[in-house]
């Protein structure tokens, strides 16, 4: 018997005459790392925002444990946005403290600082953090209230390989703690390493759904990028994105 924590049915989102998400159906099991994979503009972030309750679907439904999103849904989820500005002149410590104060029972500051290795830049102006440091801080802020589900929107985009691997470690730890992780990425390696189940999107529609290994084996290709290339004639990550 599976323990479905989130599921979507006929999910659609359009802005004026642009269809961002076009009829998605999938389920996410509790404790799973679920990946939304696709190139830029595939509809990953819009889908994520509807799962987070930040955007209303144009049609279709998002259900939490078989019912509508509960009133306290924001307290059950933690979100790491793709691009979040922090308040000017605040340090990571100030930010953690600020976000800790939004919740009744936050994780102790010391635990978060140790877990996300924030101590070396704890009192630095947040505008002066490196990409990796910033992502660790944002992840700590997303987890300050010990959420059941964590949304990670392209958490490693723009990070150097080492910072990316560091963040993967953190994500693995979160998974080992039994949290449900929902991750968007356009890095096939990241999806292969971290995700238990994934959906590959293109132009707002599902191309494929399954475990990374099953998808690769079924297609008889080397990796997800090759699979995506076979399906669409496009690479998941464009050459210029790799260079940048």
């Amino acid at each position: 018997m599976t323990d479905v924590i989130l599921s979507v049915e006929g999910l659609k989102k359009s802005y004026d005459d642009v269809i961002a998400v076009d009829g998605l159906d999938f389920s996410i099991e509790a404790g799973q790392c679920f990946g939304l994979l696709g190139p830029n503009g595939a509809g990953k972030t819009t889908t994520l925002q509807m799962l987070e309750g930040m955007e209303s679907p144009t049609s279709g439904t998002v259900t939490y444990r078989g019912g509508p999103l509960p009133q306290d849904y924001q307290e059950r989820i933690g979100i790491q946005f793709q691009a979040t500005a922090l308040q000017d002149f605040l340090t990571p410590f100030d930010n953690l403290k600020l976000f800790s104060r939004f919740y009744d029972d936050p994780i102790p500051m010391d635990t978060l600082i140790e877990k996300f290795r924030l101590s070396e830049f704890l009192h630095r102006d947040a505008r002066r953090l490196s990409g990796g440091q910033r992502q660790r801080l944002l992840l700590a802020m997303a987890l300050v209230h010990n959420p059941e589900i964590v949304f990670l929107d392209e958490p490693t985009t723009g990070l150097d390989p080492r910072s990316r691997r560091d963040l993967w470690e953190v994500v693995r730890d979160l998974k080992n703690e039994g949290r449900t992780l929902i991750l968007t990425t356009h890095y096939m390696e990241e999806a292969e390493i971290l995700c238990d189940e994934l959906v590959i999107l293109s132009h707002g529609k599902t191309l494929l759904e399954g475990t990374p290994r099953a998808l690769i084996e079924a297609a008889g290709v080397e990796n997800l990028d090759a699979l995506f290339l076979n399906l669409t004639g496009e690479h998941l990550v464009k050459t210029e994105e790799v260079i940048s």
């Binding site: 930040m54 924001q74 979100i79 946005f81 979040t84």
Partner: peptide, 9 residues
Amino acid sequence: YLRRLKATP
């Protein structure tokens, strides 16, 4: 930043 705050209680 407001969007980030919206994702909190």
